[in-house]
């Protein structure tokens, strides 16, 4: 059973919860449809309970499904709808993507919580990175679901929040390193930044490499499918011996947009985002997070003026980073 660390719990409260609250209150204007891996103790949804609506929960271990359902019931999470499936996330998503009747295709999810225990690139014997393929499939499913909605009540635009936690240790056989130094660095017009990225030591800075890779990769993949994506600064924290990076993206789809989504942040902007360090004892190498973010206050002036998500959720405006 996955045991949540204190850092993770703190992260959910001081980082995720205010963002979820803002997305629920200002963007979606309602409870969020959840898809993800809440774990048998339903730890994450406990902290976001008041913003979460219907839940589609996935559990890796069959013996934990009962605990998940029971805890969800005890916390009153069945009231807006609850569905649970047992399976490994990547396999499940890939399977659902090719199944026309899949339950995954019935709803647009406002909150995708992909709390991976492992890394981003795990290649199978055939050399395929299943996790990346599954993410691709999930994005496609979201897109298909959005465009499959018909009738007068179909929304012109839909938004959502993607939370993703990845382990720094990833047996990628140097691919992240290569990708960052070749492909990403090529896209950076700023000479100084390019030099900084290229000069990043390979050892001891795996979390920086992972963060460059994943942010670039996710934004690119989602944009290519028509999504507009805004990335928050990533957070780095330790859980036991593992180093984990937590990513937060707000995404949106517009019915009138055909083809790739317009970039919200350039590659340079993405890479310049600070890495927030969350540590139980000694907080912040790049930024401090001593108290919960007040995104609600932050977003108040923008309420009603915001056709574009990037204006809604600019953490940099906060001045805390």
């Amino acid at each position: 059973m996955f045991t949540p660390s204190d850092a993770k719990q703190r992260l959910r409260k001081i980082w995720d919860a205010p963002i979820i609250s803002a997305v629920s209150e200002f963007i979606v204007k309602g409870r969020l449809n959840y898809f993800g891996l809440p774990g048998p103790m339903v730890e994450d949804i406990r902290d976001w309970k008041q913003y979460v609506g219907p839940i589609f929960a996935l559990e890796r271990n069959r013996q934990d499904v009962a605990s998940l359902c029971s805890n969800a019931a005890a916390l009153g999470l069945l009231q807006f709808g609850f569905h649970c499936e047992c399976g490994e996330l990547d396999d499940f998503v890939i399977r659902c993507a090719s199944d026309g009747q899949s339950t995954l295709k019935k709803n647009w999810f406002h909150l995708l919580n992909l709390d991976y225990c492992g890394g981003w690139i795990y290649k199978d014997a055939a050399g395929n990175a299943k996790r990346v393929a599954a993410f691709d499939a999930l994005v496609q499913v979201q897109r298909d679901t959005f465009f499959a909605q018909i009738g007068a009540s179909r929304p012109q635009k839909s938004y959502g929040l993607l939370l993703m936690t990845l382990n720094v240790r990833s047996d990628d056989k140097g691919e992240i390193n290569r990708y960052v130094r070749r492909q990403i660095a090529d896209e950076i017009p700023d000479v100084n930044l390019r030099k900084a990225v290229m000069g990043l030591p390979e050892k001891g800075h795996e979390h920086w490499l992972l963060r460059y890779y994943v942010m670039h990769n996710v934004v690119e993949k989602m944009s290519s499918k028509g999504f507009r994506v805004y990335a928050f600064p990533p957070l780095w924290y330790r859980s036991g011996k593992s180093g984990l990076v937590h990513f937060t993206f707000v995404f949106g789809l517009d019915r009138s947009v055909v083809g790739a989504g317009q970039a919200v942040q350039t590659t340079g902007t993405l890479l310049r985002l600070p890495m927030v360090t969350l540590d139980q004892r000694n907080t912040g190498t790049c930024a401090r997070l001593d108290e919960p973010l007040s995104l609600t206050k932050l977003l108040a002036p923008y309420h009603g003026l915001l056709p574009h998500i990037e204006e809604v959720v600019s953490l940099q405006r906060r001045g805390a980073v």
Binding site: R62, A73, L78, Q79, F82, H83, C84, C86
Partner: peptide, 13 residues
């Protein structure tokens, strides 16, 4: 009463 039939289990709360 909430009746959940999901994830291979049946739950009545």
């Amino acid at each position: 009463v909430e009746l959940l039939v999901s994830g291979g289990t049946v739950l009545v709360k």
